[in-house]
């Protein structure tokens, strides 16, 4: 089912043609961006249907986790609560957005199998669906982030623009990883387990629950952790710290190279994805 009144499909081959079709898919997904939003709101709504708090369960469970981990690690490492709680809240919330987009990316096409096999809907619509779904979750978590910062008197509106830039860079990078995971998972069914393990490993290797300066002379290794730069670009501005220019270079390079590679893979596999399912 589609709103278009004309559909022309040819068996033309060639890399250039496939690239063109991939671009058209992207364009069409933007033209119908409202559909991705509808699917995302439906997803979130249906997950919490019938519960008293509705989607605010997301907020509640995240709040409890932040408090639990915050108090535990603060006492384990002997840290000041007013420093550590906002730090760990921001870390868990924003790392969660990345993990969500990338892990759920694995199901992008697998879950849409019945829609993809009888419509000409753009593939990218389902990528944006995953991104939007996680943005809606983030919106519920913002209460915790803002509340925690305000409680400790660290909330400054002036910090917001730079943090928004960080969120944008994070989404830009997470979305290509999500699409790549989606294509790979459609083709190979053991990819999701690998992705989930990698993301689980990453959350412990990245300064989410611990402070980077505790790392001592090993801090240089953080430079090789892409998740560190991703997280830092959002967390540091909100805590009133500066983000190093080096981080931005890494993030922009990663976005450009990542999207180039992913888009080429997409162009090459686009017409096959429906057969993988």
């Amino acid at each position: 089912m589609d709103s278009a009144t004309h559909m022309l499909r040819t068996g033309r081959r060639g890399a250039l043609f496939q690239l063109q079709m991939a671009l058209r898919d992207l364009q069409n997904s933007f033209a119908r961006i409202g559909l991705a939003w509808s699917l995302a709101t439906h997803d979130v709504g249906s997950r919490y249907r019938g519960s008293v708090l509705g989607p605010f369960w997301i907020t509640l469970s995240m709040g409890l986790m932040v408090l639990g981990i915050g108090f535990l690690y603060a006492s384990l490492f002997n840290l000041a609560l007013d420093q550590f709680l906002p730090y760990v809240a921001l870390g868990i919330v924003f790392f969660g957005v990345m993990t969500g987009i990338i892990n759920e990316g694995c199901d992008t096409f697998v879950h849409a199998a019945s829609m993809l096999s009888q419509t000409s809907l753009p593939m990218f619509t389902f990528v944006w669906r995953v991104v939007f779904r996680n943005l809606i979750n983030l919106a519920h978590h913002l209460v915790i982030v803002v509340g925690m910062l305000a409680f400790y008197g660290q909330w400054k509106v002036a910090n917001v623009p730079l943090a928004l830039l960080g969120i944008f860079l994070m989404l830009l990078n997470a979305s290509w990883a999500s699409l790549l995971a989606g294509i790979a998972s459609a083709r190979f069914r053991d990819i999701p387990q690998i992705v989930i393990s990698v993301m689980q490993f990453a959350i412990f290797m990245t300064p989410v629950f611990w402070l980077p300066d505790r790392f001592g002379k090993h801090q240089v290794f953080l430079d090789f952790n892409p998740f560190y730069h991703l997280l830092q670009s959002v967390r540091a501005p909100l805590l009133g710290q500066t983000v190093s220019g080096h981080s931005y270079v890494v993030l922009v390079t990663m976005a450009v190279v990542g999207w180039l590679v992913t888009f080429l893979v997409f162009a090459r596999t686009r017409r096959r994805i429906v057969h993988y399912l």
């Binding site: 089912m1 589609d2 709103s3 278009a4 009144t5 004309h6 559909m7 022309l8 499909r9 040819t10 068996g11 019945s114 993809l116 096999s117 009888q118 419509t119 000409s120 017409r271 429906v274 057969h275």
Partner: peptide, 23 residues
């Protein structure tokens, strides 16, 4: 005809809004 499978050879040209009840 619904646009889900693309041809390997040849063309499909459909004018009009398509509704598929395949599944």
């Amino acid at each position: 005809l619904s646009g889900a499978y693309e041809p390997d050879e040849g063309t499909i040209d459909v004018h009009g809004r398509i509704a598929a009840l395949l599944d």
